[in-house]
């Protein structure tokens, strides 16, 4: 059976990483205005892994940019209870003139850390994404998957607190009161081939467990959403708003172990709902 939540799970405690209430985002003005998001309510708990699913163009990236503070909502409230979120995009977007280690150090440098501290933290983060010995490689010397892992390490370095990475990192980042961390990912594996994507999904789950960070992961791939997320949130298109949520903890675990019947059922259900949402636009 599928565990479907008719209502979003109520915040059992105050420990949410981020909350969105009635968020609207309109691009442009007048008759040419595009309302990308309207009335989005969403809550991501501390340490929770939430996948945001939707057809392309439905406003997933817009939503993520709002949470990342790269853009301002037209209406509604976004409350973050975390340090500055770490952001990862579809492209690795590493600085091509810096080595892998220097790329990871960049956010620490911007935060004003000293050279020796930066080195230590960057070294630990590269170990975390299993790129220990490759710190002095340039981005062009790395494969697509490796670049995405460096981007993950860099994103983690930009998040204020990294509880769980190691004492050095925690002290180095200088977070006196460890706020829960938040990782925002915008289809980070979409441009990779299937096998590499697979490996990186496993890697991401491992890093998530190790760092205890909350994750808001955007994807248009139902399977990926079910495998990774504890909760899958479906977004409608034009304007984007939350259509429905599924608790996918069991299905995700099943996918990993390979006892796939339940998982297949969940994927099937979410996919058909997604189809419905998309085809409703053809009718309109």
């Amino acid at each position: 059976m599928t565990a479907t939540l008719a209502v979003p799970p109520l915040a059992t405690s105050q420990d949410s990483a981020v909350e969105l209430v009635g968020v609207r985002k309109t691009f442009g003005r007048g008759p040419a205005a595009v309302t990308a998001l309207d009335g989005v309510d969403l809550r991501v708990g501390a340490g929770e892994f939430v996948c945001l699913l939707g057809a392309s163009g439905c406003g997933k990236s817009t939503l993520l940019n709002l949470v990342a503070d790269l853009d301002q909502p037209s209406a509604g409230r976004i409350v973050r209870h975390t340090a500055r979120p770490a952001v990862m995009f579809q492209e690795a977007a590493l600085m091509p003139w810096l080595t892998a280690a220097r790329n990871v150090e960049l956010p620490l440098r911007l935060a004003g850390l000293r050279r020796s501290e930066r080195r230590v933290v960057a070294g630990e983060l590269l170990e975390l994404v299993r790129l220990g010995g490759l710190g002095d490689k340039r981005p062009h010397e790395l494969s697509g998957g490796m670049r995405q892992r460096v981007a993950l390490a860099r994103a983690l370095a930009s998040a204020g607190d990294l509880s769980g990475v190691g004492a050095g990192a925690g002290a180095g980042a200088g977070a006196a009161a460890p706020a829960p961390a938040l990782l925002l990912m915008d289809e980070p594996f979409a441009a990779l081939d299937a096998i590499t994507r697979d490996v990186l999904q496993a890697e991401l789950l491992r890093v998530w467990r190790a760092t205890n960070t909350a994750v808001l992961f955007v994807t248009h791939d139902v399977r990926e959403a079910v495998r990774l997320g504890q909760r899958v949130v479906l977004l409608s298109s034009r304007p984007g708003r939350v259509v429905r949520e599924w608790d996918t903890r069991q299905a995700g675990a099943d996918l990993v172990t390979g006892s796939g019947e339940h998982a297949a059922e969940v994927i099937e259900e979410i996919t058909s709902r997604l189809r419905e949402v998309i085809s409703s636009h053809a009718a309109a």
């Binding site: 501390a46 340490g47 929770e48 892994f49 491992r206 467990r209 190790a210 205890n212 903890r249």
Partner: peptide, 8 residues
């Protein structure tokens, strides 16, 4: 593995 809060 440090299970995240609420991870079941």
């Amino acid at each position: 593995g440090a299970e995240p809060a609420g991870g079941t």
